[in-house]
């Protein structure tokens, strides 16, 4: 009974995003559509970092590195393996084009997520022994190392950048991924098992003494966060069609951190902050030269405004 309902629900979700995509591509101008997609990608990134930074309290400044892993992995997949799969799907299995690209991009997203999660595991296991500002700096360092490693990989274009990535990202995939991220992380943290993340943030020693394997949970949060960062990166790659490691410097990580810091601890807050910070520079077009200056001022004033709260406790 229940499983039938769940299947129906999934179908409904798929249909909803399918028609939403159809509707928006028909009636929304491409510029707004693009902003919408960027906003959605930022929501994914912010929520996934929220799990690590705000819920588990492990301050990571290397999210852009995982994004890069996902972006490059998926682009490599759709660019090199994609055409083969496409001919297999259309010629051997006689799928229509639509289904073929559906499966290819679906695979690409999963691969992006899994590889990023793997990177998250490799980075997280040693680094999460550190705390506070040292952890922040170490994750920043790992993010940069990932970037330089990709920069030195010739198969993905190296310093020339990765060009001609097929454009697959649309509102359907975006909606699905945002919904998926939200559901997984939201359901996780609103459960007794997921409250373990919060417990670690509040007091790691006490959490461990209450039976929570803190290392497992910290690395777990990191891996889940990296997974969705990878998915976000994949969506970005297939929206822009071109990748260069310069878009994944630690400034990118800091932008995501600012979203989480601005939004407070809740997922809704992070998502709203992500949307606001995507829209703000667009709304203030005439302001575009000052964009980064405003950004840094927002960050400073945000921290100073919170200082009062910290003083009282």
């Amino acid at each position: 009974m229940k499983s039938i309902r769940q299947v129906l629900f999934c179908v409904a979700i798929l249909c909803f995003f399918f028609f939403l995509n159809h509707f928006l591509t028909l009636y929304l101008n491409p510029y707004y559509l693009q902003i919408l997609i960027y906003a959605g990608i930022n929501v994914i990134l912010a929520i996934s970092l929220n799990l690590v930074n705000a819920q588990t309290g492990q301050f990571s400044m290397g999210h852009a590195g995982f994004m890069a892993v996902g972006a490059y992995a998926s682009a490599f997949f759709t660019d090199r393996v994609g055409p083969l799969l496409h001919s297999f799907f259309t010629h051997v299995l006689a799928f229509p084009d639509f289904f073929s690209s559906f499966f290819i991009f679906g695979f690409a997203l999963v691969i992006a997520g899994c590889l990023s999660a793997g990177a998250g595991f490799i980075v997280g296991l040693p680094v999460l022994r550190l705390r506070g500002d040292y952890l922040a700096i170490a994750t920043l360092g790992f993010g940069e190392i990932i970037r330089v490693m990709i920069l030195n990989m010739d198969v993905v274009g190296g310093a020339r950048g990765f060009t001609d990535i097929p454009i697959y990202t649309n509102v359907f995939w975006l909606g699905l991924c945002v919904y998926g991220t939200w559901m997984v992380i939201g359901n996780l943290i609103h459960s007794t098992k997921g409250r373990a993340f919060l417990a670690i943030r509040e007091d790691e020693v006490a959490a461990e003494c209450m039976g929570i394997h803190t290392t497992k949970y910290k690395v777990g949060a990191f891996v889940i966060g990296a997974f969705f960062a990878g998915v976000g990166g994949a969506l970005l790659a297939h929206e822009v069609g071109y990748l260069h490691t310069n878009s994944f410097t630690f400034l990118r990580s800091i932008e995501i951190v600012v979203m989480v810091v601005l939004g407070g601890t809740s997922l809704v807050g992070s998502a709203l902050a992500a949307i606001v910070l995507t829209l703000l520079p667009e709304v203030l077009r005439f302001f575009s030269e000052y964009r980064m200056v405003v950004y840094s001022l927002v960050l400073i004033f945000l921290m100073l405004a919170r200082a009062k709260k910290w003083k009282s406790t």
Partner: peptide
């Protein structure tokens, strides 16, 4: 204590070791 969590949640999370449902079922 887990200061920013509610009193109830403090006691709930301490029953962590009695949870048998994996992450998938939670999600």
């Amino acid at each position: 204590l887990f200061g920013n969590m509610s009193v109830l949640d403090n006691v709930r999370v301490a029953q962590y070791i009695y949870l048998n449902r994996g992450l998938w079922r939670t999600v």
